[in-house]
Design a binder for these strands. Sequence first.
DNA 1: AGGTACATGTAACATGTTACATGATTCC
DNA 2: GGAATCATGTAACATGTTACATGTACCT
Lengths: 183, 183
Amino acid sequence: MSLPHAILTALLEKPSSGLELTRRFDKSIGFFWSATHQQIYRELSRLEATGLIRALQRTGPVRGQKKEYEVLPAGRAELARWTAAADDPRPIRDPLLLRLRAAAVVGTAGLDGELRRQLALHRESLASYRTIERRDFAPGEEDRGDPLQHAVLRAGIGLEAFWVQWLEETLETLPAPPPEPPA
Amino acid sequence: MSLPHAILTALLEKPSSGLELTRRFDKSIGFFWSATHQQIYRELSRLEATGLIRALQRTGPVRGQKKEYEVLPAGRAELARWTAAADDPRPIRDPLLLRLRAAAVVGTAGLDGELRRQLALHRESLASYRTIERRDFAPGEEDRGDPLQHAVLRAGIGLEAFWVQWLEETLETLPAPPPEPPA
DNA sequence: AGGTACATGTAACATGTTACATGATTCC
DNA sequence: GGAATCATGTAACATGTTACATGTACCT
């Protein structure tokens, strides 16, 4: 039950329409909770039906016309409750680890290349998070930025850094792949 | 599409019935890909229908009677293909990070206790993974255990260690919670 | 009038979760 | 024969993904 709360948070930060939310879920919020516009519209309808948000006044509900939502007091209360509620950490669930386990059974052919590919992608993510950190949380300058938002970003950086290091180590333990045949 | 491949891997390691698979998904495989028995039975039916596995001979298909499956050559081939296929890393998707972002908007009341709870749980997981590592991958003793399986375990250890460290850091940046009222 | 971007939505399906139903085997 | 355990399954629902449908606003 995270998506409704993600939307409540986004709407509290700034009342928005479905499409605007979709764009924000492609950027900052989407770094740790992605959602498509179909999910967002479905969830907006539910949140409105349960009285946690409401649409800002409009003459008639016409398709194709922008519809902005804002959070109602009940929505803010629900979000505050959820923020501090007991909820166990998500168990690890990663297809790449599954694939290593499968490779232990069916062989490592082609695995080396895929691990290098993943490594390159994680290095990219890591670099982009670090750029954001330098931009939004520069040290010294009188603590710009919310410390909680900084903690979230540090989590992203730490996780990407972990994967980079783990992939480098794992590539070393892998048997060398066959050399590329000359063209 | 990871569950079918998780099942193929498990069945290659050892042909099993649905319930036996369920138990194995509560242990080693489940550390990085969990599944309930309902999911497993549903997927076993599909894998059998698509010719990747088959049930070992039985007189009549009776409810309540054990049914063992084994992987067919097509299943092994599909697993090998999937192992080395290009598949982008899973984006981060963690409700706890969402909750921190929400707390930046609705306040940090009660957050401290929940972070400490999460920290305790991650410390437990970390300790249990390290115990397994000492047991199955003791150094020196002529490289017992598959290096790929060891890499998977190192990922679990690294991720739990990351969360422990991150939670410790984050708790320090949090404003102190109100003192407990005396009983 | 046509194209493009904006904006909201439906439909169908895949995956994951929760609750419940049914039968077989073993032990007392 | 009743309880506990083993074992397979159905049903209903929640969540997430993919493809498609419909309408508005603006520019040329």
